[in-house]
């Protein structure tokens, strides 16, 4: 009798519990071996991928820089630029190369402005990245759609505004947020129109991102903030209060006074802070006189105290 037959025989004669246990041991050993092999494969894959990313980065960075400095100084592209566009266009059929090019262009967009920024946007359009991004907007995976919107926002792609607008009230938070940011980055204060009928709450994080988008824009015309101060969505009111404070909207004083009776304490307290910031000591005194609710009175007094201290 060989070893194999002996083991089979021993297994058959063993109690059922031992047989089950033995099978689980066998299954665990197979699982462990499989995981170790795939772990090794993943490590190798990540290693190779890492090297490929570095190689692609070097190659495309050089090409993009060459493109940027080969301009004619006029609107039309030079021969060299056209050749580079063709070369990159052919290369980005590969997903990994496409990702490398997007990363390079995104990083450059963060570092440059003016003509250079426009050149990058032109390159983004000409090599067809806009088509890939637009296609990704149709994906059923939320993170792919959200990433595509981020990309379109970064390269200020206006052509997709209608499509992105359909995501402004998307049930998935991440998509909705990115669509709203796209709207503000591209259309400045006008892009905030989604606040008019927004039912979902704006998180503090998202408010910060929206404010950052607005603060980074130059020569913008500030719209009338009052309707948002009267919104039934508390987070919209809080966001509007931040706008009032940052953009020193003195003309909203009457609405601010009304907000002192808002049902949400957070709104009342923040309104006080804004009033203090905009109208100073004089406002504080009259506020304390006119404040009826005890919590707000305390806040107002605290606020006054801080003002005197400062």
């Amino acid at each position: 009798m060989n070893l194999y037959e002996y083991l089979i025989d021993a297994f058959n004669q063993a109690p059922v519990l031992i047989q089950i246990g033995f099978l689980i041991v066998l299954a665990l050993i197979i699982c462990i071996i499989t995981l170790i092999i795939s772990l090794r494969a993943i490590r190798s894959y990540l290693n190779i991928k890492g090297k490929e990313i570095i190689k692609n980065k070097k190659e495309f960075e050089a090409l993009v820089v060459e493109y940027l400095y080969s301009g004619t100084g006029f609107d039309e592209l030079s021969e060299k630029q056209l050749a580079i566009i063709t070369r990159i266009k052919d290369a980005i059929i590969s997903t990994s190369k496409r990702k490398s090019v997007i990363t390079i262009l995104s990083n450059l967009m963060n570092e440059v402005s003016g003509e250079m920024s426009d050149s990058i946007k032109t390159l983004y359009h000409k090599i067809g990245l806009i088509t890939y991004a637009t296609q990704r907007l149709e994906s059923k995976k939320w993170h792919i759609v959200a990433k595509a919107i981020v990309e379109l926002r970064r390269f200020k792609v206006y052509e997709t505004q209608d499509k992105v607008a359909t995501f402004l009230n998307h049930p998935r938070k991440e998509i909705r947020k990115e669509a709203q940011l796209y709207s503000v980055h591209l259309f400045k204060f006008n892009g905030l129109s989604f606040l008019d009928d927004l039912e979902t709450p704006l998180s503090e994080w998202h408010q910060l991102l929206l404010l950052e988008a607005l603060l980074n824009l130059e020569n913008q015309k500030i719209c009338d903030i009052t309707p948002w101060l009267k919104s039934s969505n508390t987070s919209v009111v809080l966001f509007a209060l931040k706008l009032v404070k940052i953009y020193t909207q003195f003309e909203t004083k009457e609405t601010l006074i009304e907000l002192l009776s808002h049902p949400e304490k957070e709104v009342r307290v923040y309104t006080l802070k804004v009033l203090k910031e905009l109208f100073g000591y004089e406002a504080e005194e009259s506020l304390i006189e006119n404040t009826s609710t005890s919590d707000l009175r305390i806040d107002a007094e605290m606020s006054l105290l801080n003002l005197v201290k400062n």
């Binding site: 063993a14 031992i18 246990g21 033995f22 041991v25 665990l28 462990i32 995981l35 772990l39």
Partner: peptide, 20 residues
């Protein structure tokens, strides 16, 4: 038989979770 099997199972599960 039971004891060895029990120890082997405990050990292998521990190894498996570490690898995961």
């Amino acid at each position: 038989q039971y004891a060895v099997l029990f120890i082997a199972l405990a050990y292998l599960f521990s190894v498996l979770f570490s690898i995961v």
